[in-house]
Design a protein around this nucleic acid. Structure first.
Lengths: 202, 202
DNA sequence: GTCAAAGCGGACCCTGGGTCCGGATTCTAC
DNA sequence: GTAGAATCCGGACCCAGGGTCCGCTTTGAC
């Protein structure tokens, strides 16, 4: 499985497409008025190239999303506290959720685009499963918690891209307020005393 | 605004379309391979008729969904306990969520189709707002609960159609188990003693 | 029975994702 | 350096499916 590396122009074009797509999604309010042809044009590349590199629209979105997510994921899977695995579960669960929320806040349009690209159930996506597994494992270490699988799903559901978009976008809930609300909610689920006061997480 | 009632043939056709669509969505695993043309054909009606009656695809889906939802909604807004407004909040919140979950379980394909129809944010849909308002009002009556608006969203997020589809469909979690898990989760959020033992709801 | 309004339906249009293939590039072997 | 093959490029092309249009039919009020 030498998996010979791609040609130089292929790599360059792939990068150009990612950059262009990123910019386009950031610029347009709704993902569905960024067309594959638009992306190709913006990247100065033919449509064929774009489909060759990413397979299809969901594929492109996924690639973009995962590239952006990578550092966060790495921090969560092997980084230092409060995200990394050495953190005590009661601190780590809220930290993980906060990280996911922040990521979605920083990449609202992209996350939305991915969800709306109709790439089958989001629950089969690799990145979702990773978060779920991580979260579930942390939950399992907290005594007295049952149904950790479902609980992990339910907690993650509170960070769904369209909900975030609705709250942050339409309702104009400020970022820090949203984070606090999620933290509060999470604490409730874990049965901890909720962080009522301004828990300095700015 | 006499809003004169529609002609008889119009009413009949509208009904035929709803029935046909319902049957088609039930029969097909994925909503997206039920085409508008399919529905028209199955209803024995022209495409024009179908679009005249419902405007567009999301419109049709919404009409179907709301027709199905109507009785549940009525029960929740003005019915007897445990769903109706006379119920004590601590009982009513779980009851509302259970009702929503059951509805989605009974109408999985339809709910999925609606979500996937790309009719803008689901959070602006009338039916969603109704549930949210109801739930929030109930939550507000429980002392010591903050962020009721967010909490209502987060709880409802746990009943999202695609999550339900994933759990009930792919993972084959049995209906009663799912209901129990949601009930348990809800209890946790409310800070109640969770219904640990087999709370006979099978 | 008559007439206008409402509705019907299927041919048609158009957008946008996805394919194809002749020609240009890059890489490898000599 | 160069020949040849493998890979890639790109834009013309295809097609499914949502949505429109308009001449004809049905309905119902008088």
């Amino acid at each position: 499985m030498p998996e010979r590396k791609p040609r130089k122009d292929a790599a360059r074009n792939r990068e150009a497409v990612l950059v262009a797509a990123d910019a386009l999604f950031a610029r347009h309010a709704s993902p569905e008025d960024v067309t594959m042809a638009d992306i190709a044009a913006a990247a100065g590349v033919g449509k064929g190239t774009l489909f060759r590199a990413f397979g299809d629209r969901p594929g492109l979105l996924r690639a973009l999303y995962e590239a952006r997510l990578e550092p966060v994921r790495a921090a969560a899977e092997a980084g230092p506290p409060p995200l990394g695995p050495t953190t005590a579960p009661r601190q780590r669960v809220p930290a993980l959720l906060d990280a996911v929320l922040c990521f979605k806040l920083d990449n609202r349009r992209l996350a939305l685009a991915l969800e709306e690209s109709g790439s089958g159930s989001p629950y089969q996506a690799e990145h979702y499963e990773r978060w779920h597994t991580l979260l579930r494992a942390a939950l399992e270490q907290i005594p007295g918690l049952a149904d950790t699988g479902f609980t992990a799903h339910a907690l993650l559901a509170a960070t769904r891209a369209d909900l975030v978009e609705h709250l942050a976008g339409q309702e104009r809930v400020p970022r820090e307020r949203l984070r606090a609300q999620l933290a509060h909610f999470t604490a409730g689920v874990l049965g901890l005393d909720p962080p009522q006061e301004a828990t300095a997480q700015d």
